[in-house]
Design a binder for these strands. Structure first.
Lengths: 158, 158
DNA sequence: GCAAAGCGGACTAAAACAGTCCTGTTTACG
DNA sequence: CGTAAACAGGACTGTTTTAGTCCGCTTTGC
């Protein structure tokens, strides 16, 4: 199945939680709120931080806040932050990889049109769009409970 | 990296080769022409056959031909034939899978918009588009040589 | 009847992914 | 100025997915 990583899905949930305010929140807090395990939240936050999607504040009382406004964060941004470049085939424009027969490749560049179309589609939708009609994440959970992931924590596959 | 399967890429190469004529060709022949290993060609052809993208002729002298005109075969068709439904997240519209917290899922349905946009982008481009400016696949190779895959047979990853 | 060619499915090796953990650095605060 | 909170970076591991192969069966032309 043509799909995004589970971590990308988690990332969207985390960003949605972050979008609920502009205050700095610790990974611990976000983990509690979303049910996503602490180490996993930390890992994803690092990726999001490198991409500038979230800003970090180190030290005691530190944590993360959104790096820019929800309307300025696209689905494409999130995917790229977590998974790397969006390149449907390995030797596409945005990829650093190269096809061993690039010089004579009969389909050279043909995928780029598809790539651009997909990137455009993913750039259309922003975090703000995803957050619509989700004014709250539900009452703040205080104890451990099921992750409030988007599609995360699937029923056992198949 | 957000990408399609290697097999999907191979499939495109196979279809492109098939698009060069309407005659029935054996997997052996197509394997020789493209450099993709015989068992792999066979496997992909089975998937394409089930999806109706190619038609098969069993028995001696049999083989495969395109199931419909190149302009009627989209990239989305190929991806779906090889990888299954295009559903960026597991619990999306076209997926049979279900999220364990579907009833209360805060992002329920939000991904569908993204899904539809991506599907539309992938439906825009047809085999005929990909085949443009590739009148021949080069002189018919008669001995083993490098696969003439699109992006297949990459340089060692990374 | 025999050989060519596709069909269906099982199996294996390799790669990618998800998840965890550890060690170091930065910062608030008593 | 010492301690604890919190992020940074990266190594490591078990699991899942993917790619590739193989085998026995069926269909069909000659």
């Amino acid at each position: 199945m043509f799909k995004v990583n589970k971590l990308t899905d988690y990332a969207m949930v985390l960003l949605l939680e972050m979008a609920r305010g502009s205050t700095v929140r610790s990974t611990q807090h976000v983990s509690d709120r979303t049910g996503i395990p602490l180490p996993t939240v930390a890992k994803i936050m690092k990726s999001l931080g490198k991409a500038g999607l979230v800003q970090s504040q180190r030290g005691a009382g530190g944590g993360y806040a959104l790096g820019r406004r929800p309307i300025e964060i696209t689905v494409a941004d999130v995917i790229q932050a977590v998974e790397g470049p969006i390149a449907l085939t390995a030797c596409a424009e945005t990829s650093d990889e190269h096809c061993s027969i690039e010089a004579v490749c009969p389909v050279q560049g043909k995928w780029n049109r598809v790539n651009r179309a997909v990137r455009a589609a993913l750039t259309e939708v922003t975090l703000a769009d995803m957050a619509e009609d989700i004014p709250t994440f539900g009452p703040a959970p205080r104890a451990k409970e099921e992750p409030r992931a988007a599609t995360a924590l699937l029923a056992p596959v198949k």
